[in-house]
């Protein structure tokens, strides 16, 4: 299991498009991807779960990947969040 803590920086947080881009990117990996925020754990491969989690700009999150290719998955996840999902 690997994980990293960071802060969501894009103005919209996990809105529709960021959530979709993120879930689709994570869907390529077979490992599990979770986002911990505000004491809750969210399935990082689900667009709707990400939206429902209401992760806004300024929220501190921890991305947790566990399973095959966990390192690659975490690297991509972190760079997506840090780049503000290319918005």
């Amino acid at each position: 299991m690997v994980s990293k803590k960071l802060t969501v920086r894009n103005p919209q947080g996990f809105h529709m498009r960021p959530a979709m881009n993120f879930a689709n990117a994570m869907g390529k990996y077979s490992c599990e991807v979770f986002i911990k925020s505000n004491g809750a754990e969210t399935n990082g491969k689900s667009i709707m779960n990400l939206i429902a989690a209401g992760i806004k700009c300024g929220t501190d999150i921890e991305i947790v990947c566990s399973g095959e290719q966990e390192k690659e998955a975490l690297d991509e996840a972190v760079s997506m969040v840090e780049s503000g999902f290319g918005e």
Partner: peptide
């Protein structure tokens, strides 16, 4: 397109 995206949610 939002509706299509939602219904492509792998978890759902």
């Amino acid at each position: 397109t939002g509706h299509v995206m939602i219904m492509k949610d792998p978890y759902m």
